[in-house]
């Protein structure tokens, strides 16, 4: 019984440690930096905490406007944000674009989309491989 309690305490401690470790400030700043070269203005940031892998997908929604360009940037602990990607879905939940290029097996750090329809869009974030379950994403815009 003592062993079971010890095991549980260790698991509890690990979960606490894992949660406490997901500080995304550095990643958010990295994402925000990626907006500047093309003149995108900062709009919103999302903390991506996949709870050490227990969470498979994180979905946010946002109203995108017609005739507006958006940049969605991603960053995690890997310099090439390996494993982390986002799929943008339209209001009918149809995929519009993904930052993961299936053919090349590449994780792109950003998506630029020129929106042609105003509506609620969904941003579905996932970790496909690796064990980096903490990241950030920033949306920027320009007209």
């Amino acid at each position: 019984m003592k062993k079971r309690i010890l095991l549980l305490m260790l698991a509890w401690g690990f979960i606490y440690w894992a949660n406490a470790q997901c500080d995304v400030t550095e990643y958010t700043n990295k994402c925000a930096e990626r907006l500047k070269p093309q003149g995108y203005k900062y709009l919103k940031s999302y903390k991506l905490d996949f709870m050490n892998g227990s969470k498979k997908q994180i979905i946010y929604s946002y109203v995108f406007s017609n005739n507006t360009s958006y940049r969605i940037t991603l960053a995690n602990g890997d310099k090439d944000n390996k494993g982390l990607f986002v799929t943008l879905l339209d209001s009918e939940k149809k995929p519009v674009v993904s930052s993961y290029l299936e053919k090349e097996k590449k994780y792109m750090p950003a998506i630029d989309i020129k929106c042609s329809r105003t509506g609620i869009y969904y941003l579905a974030y996932e970790v496909k491989e690796g064990k980096d379950y903490c990241g950030s994403s920033v949306i920027g815009f320009k007209r």
């Binding site: 519009v96 674009v97 750090p109 998506i111 989309i113 020129k114 042609s116 329809r117 105003t118």
Partner: peptide, 18 residues
């Protein structure tokens, strides 16, 4: 929609108009 890869970014121009 048109999609290209440009300077490490997936660039999409959504099709249609409103």
């Amino acid at each position: 929609s048109k999609q290209v890869e440009k300077e490490g970014t997936v660039v999409v121009e959504q099709g249609g108009s409103e």
